[in-house]
């Protein structure tokens, strides 16, 4: 089939290109996590529990990130609240 693809001028991404793209994404993600303080996952869990006392939200609706600059760190908390009347299970 590759022979025919050549004449059709069909461009399919080579498996090496796919591998590179997948690696770039996962490695960047894991490096981000590596640099985060150890307490972050637990803190995220606790924040989630506090919010749940008032609003029903699922795990992926809270995002906690730490941005480190030269001399200060910023804790970024992103909570997506469900629309009114729309309570996720």
């Amino acid at each position: 089939m590759r022979f025919l693809d050549y004449f059709k001028g069909k461009k399919t991404a080579s498996s090496a290109t796919v591998a590179k793209e997948r690696l770039q994404i996962i490695v960047a993600h894991e490096r981000g996590q590596r640099d985060q303080p150890d307490y972050l996952p637990k803190m995220q869990q606790e924040i989630l529990e506090v919010i749940r006392k008032y609003v029903q939200i699922s795990d992926d609706m809270v995002q906690v990130d730490v941005d480190r600059n030269d001399n200060c760190s910023v804790l970024e908390l992103n909570v997506t609240l469900p629309e009114r009347g729309d309570t996720p299970s």
Partner: peptide, 16 residues
Amino acid sequence: RVERGEMLSVADVEEI
């Protein structure tokens, strides 16, 4: 295999 696009190249691995 690198030339056939079946294997990551040295440059790819160095970049990652």
